[in-house]
Structure formats: structure tokens, C-alpha cells
């Protein structure tokens, strides 16, 4: 099928006059698709993105959300995004950098957002995820708790929940936990 020995001759030829292309970096399909996602970002005003490793590393970036309504209004929350080389086959890995009092985000920064795990689908994109995260702050949800204590307070005593959110966003201890200042 393949003319093996013609290939052999050709290879010898090529290495002889070494007129081949300069060996560039191999680009993963994930990087290419991500370039598209990033260039099409259409973020809500409350969200911004930054690239700590510069313009050529889009696979690791940070998104900062400043909710303008709801319990978390006035706060500022940064998430790290890690994109796999087989994106969008695999979902991005997203973590919250700060320690935050939130029913759907645990104290280690894990986020319970369906499209990051069980409902991830290659037709979704970075924009959808950022909107999803933003939504978590405007409408925290006590039905899918990662921080069960916070979820219980939100369900049983929304006023206390609002107070706890304000208090933890200012930084300092609540119980045993030191929260990061997020303002």
C-alpha cells in the first residue's frame, strides 16, 4: 500500500539537503479549539479573565467574578482553569482560589457545577462555564451541597446565611475556618 522504499529514498534525500520545515511545536487539538473558545468569549461585565503565563499559554488561566447582585454582591472570586490537551473531550478543571462560604463550593475550592462533571459535553465551551460559575453566585443552591453546613443555613435561615456571607467575605474566622477576604 505504502511505497515503503520510495519513502526510504525520500527520507535520505530530505536529510541530505535538509530543506525540511523547521520542527515546530506539536499543537494539540485541544489548544486549537481553546483558541477559538477564548477569541469568542463574551463575558458578563462582572467577569474578567487573565493569563498568568502570557499570551501563548491559553491552557491555564484565571477568571475573576465580581457578582453585582445577590448574597455575594460586592465580593470578588477568582477561579483557576486547567485545560486538557484533549479538550473539549475532557471538561476543564476549575477550582476556586479563595476559601469561600458557599453551599456549592467546598473549603478546598472544589465546585459543584453539573457542566464541569456529569453534564459536560464537547459542544459546551469556556463561555458557558463562566456563566455557570457566575450563576452560582447570583443563585446559590442548597439542593446540591458541597458545603453542607452552608447549604443548611441557606435553606433554613436565609437571613443568617446572608450575614455569614458578608462576614466571611470580609475575611477572618468563622468557627474553625479562616476565610479569605474577597472584596
Amino acid at each position: 500500500m505504502i511505497r515503503l522504499f520510495k519513502i526510504k529514498e525520500k527520507q535520505q534525500e530530505l536529510s541530505a539537503n535538509s530543506n525540511g520545515k523547521p520542527p515546530g511545536k506539536t499543537q494539540s487539538a485541544g489548544e486549537l479549539r481553546l483558541q477559538k473558545d477564548i477569541s469568542e468569549l463574551n463575558l458578563p461585565n462582572a467577569c474578567s479573565i487573565s493569563f498568568p503565563n502570557g499570551q501563548d499559554d491559553l491552557m491555564n488561566f484565571e477568571v475573576t467574578i465580581r457578582p453585582d447582585e445577590g448574597y455575594y454582591s460586592g465580593g470578588m472570586f477568582t477561579f483557576t482553569f486547567q485545560i486538557s490537551s484533549v479538550y473539549p473531550h475532557d471538561a476543564p478543571k476549575v477550582k476556586c482560589k479563595a476559601k469561600v462560604y458557599h453551599p456549592n463550593i467546598d473549603l478546598d475550592g472544589n465546585v459543584c457545577l453539573n457542566i464541569l462533571r456529569e453534564d459536560w459535553n464537547p459542544i459546551l465551551n469556556i463561555n458557558t462555564i463562566i456563566y455557570g460559575l457566575y450563576h452560582l453566585f447570583t443563585e446559590p443552591n442548597h439542593e446540591d451541597p458541597l458545603n453542607a453546613k452552608a447549604a443548611k443555613v441557606l435553606r433554613d435561615n436565609p437571613k443568617l446565611f446572608a450575614f455569614n456571607v458578608k462576614r466571611t467575605m470580609a475575611g477572618g474566622y468563622m468557627g474553625q475556618t479562616l476565610f479569605t477576604r474577597c472584596r
Partner: peptide, 22 residues
């Protein structure tokens, strides 16, 4: 258009931060 060559983003039309950098 945004343009990428061999792992380098030569120009990114968006977001504004990358547009400025490129």
C-alpha cells in the same frame, strides 16, 4: 480573525486583554 502559528498566538481579536497583548 485571530491567528495562531506553531503554538504562538500572533493576534487574538478578543478578549480585550489578549488583543492588547498581541
Amino acid at each position: 480573525a485571530s491567528v495562531r502559528v506553531g503554538g504562538k498566538n500572533l493576534y487574538m481579536a478578543a478578549p480585550p486583554l489578549l488583543e492588547e497583548m498581541t
